[in-house]
Lab assay of single mutants.
Amino acid sequence: MGFKLLSKLLVYLTASIMAIASPLAFSVDSSGEYPTVSEIPVGEVRLYQIADGVWSHIATQSFDGAVYPSNGLIVRDGDELLLIDTAWGAKNTAALLAEIEKQIGLPVTRAVSTHFHDDRVGGVDVLRAAGVATYASPSTRRLAEVEGNEIPTHSLEGLSSSGDAVRFGPVELFYPGAAHSTDNLIVYVPSASVLYGGCAIYELSRTSAGNVADADLAEWPTSIERIQQHYPEAQFVIPGHGLPGGLDLLKHTTNVVKAHTNRSVVE
């Protein structure tokens, strides 16, 4: 069995187990497998329904001669939608809004960016022009300005110390501490036991640490421990890039980060 097929099978099995364990909360999309990078042309966006009122959005972007996937989250909030992270750029984010209108038909009224990198804030200006209120932590807003990236308009308070959590509509926002970046936030959907790890969490097929220019490698494993301790009931975990899975993604990420750190020390 090929690795790609095995990865998709694991996603399907995880979703099936969740649907059985929580039949009222989960209505997993039966329309197909989780979209992969090879299936999404740059400039297009796919939506994948995880649970009743919960979707991931998947886009792709060219970077350094390669094409990478990027995940975000959409959560229903009454007759409105909360968006977590842009679709990595203005063109993708405009396509995301169009796809949401086509498939869901509810307005996106608020959006949260989970850290300051372009795959999370690139497209904020498109959201703002569409009347979406954009939010991020003060740290993310400051770092985005320093980096020359787009800056969300509103500040999220109460997320300055490791372990801080605040309720934001249908989700809980959690600051686990520094990891992929010093400002990275985690998003949890309690009604569906869905954990969105953003770039602080890796997919299972990833074996290298990737972009760690703004990471705190020493603190990252401790931050992941905080996530595990705060959300032990999480059933569906979405990484910032690639295929979702279960809580095993947290341990896998820790292993990859520690291996990278150990290699760096040896070198």
Rank of each mutant, 00 (worst) to 15 (best):
K4H: 04
S7Q: 10
S7R: 09
L9N: 15
A15F: 15
M18S: 15
M18K: 15
A19L: 15
A19Q: 15
I20S: 09
A21Y: 14
A21R: 15
P23H: 11
L24I: 15
L24M: 15
A25N: 13
V28G: 10
S38T: 10
E39V: 11
P41F: 07
G43E: 07
G43Q: 05
E44R: 13
V45Q: 04
R46W: 08
Y48V: 15
D52P: 13
G53V: 07
S56I: 15
S56A: 15
H57A: 02
A59T: 12
A59K: 05
S62L: 07
F63L: 15
D64A: 12
Y68F: 15
S70P: 05
G72T: 02
I74Y: 05
V75A: 07
D77N: 07
D79N: 11
L81Q: 00
L81K: 00
L81F: 00
I84G: 00
D85N: 03
A87V: 02
A87M: 00
W88V: 04
N92F: 00
T93G: 00
A94K: 13
L97Y: 00
L97W: 00
A98D: 10
E99W: 06
I100G: 00
E101G: 11
I104Q: 00
L106C: 06
V108G: 00
A111G: 07
T114A: 02
F116P: 00
G122A: 10
G122Y: 08
D125M: 08
V126W: 08
L127Q: 01
R128E: 14
A130Q: 14
T134M: 05
P138Q: 09
R142N: 12
E145T: 12
G148H: 11
N149I: 07
P152V: 01
H154F: 13
G158L: 06
L159T: 02
S160A: 13
D164Y: 06
V166D: 04
F168M: 10
G169D: 05
V171G: 02
E172T: 04
E172D: 07
L173G: 01
L173N: 04
P176A: 05
A178Y: 06
A179T: 07
N184E: 01
L185V: 10
V187K: 01
V189A: 05
V189I: 10
S191H: 15
S191G: 13
S193W: 11
L195N: 00
S205E: 14
R206T: 15
G210Y: 02
D214Y: 07
A215M: 06
D216E: 09
L217T: 10
I224C: 03
H230P: 06
H230R: 15
H230S: 12
P232Q: 09
V237A: 04
G240D: 06
H241K: 01
H241T: 03
L243F: 13
L247C: 06
D248V: 08
L250D: 02
K251A: 13
K251F: 09
H252L: 03
H252F: 01
T253W: 00
T254D: 11
N255C: 06
N262M: 11
R263Q: 14
S264G: 12
E267R: 11
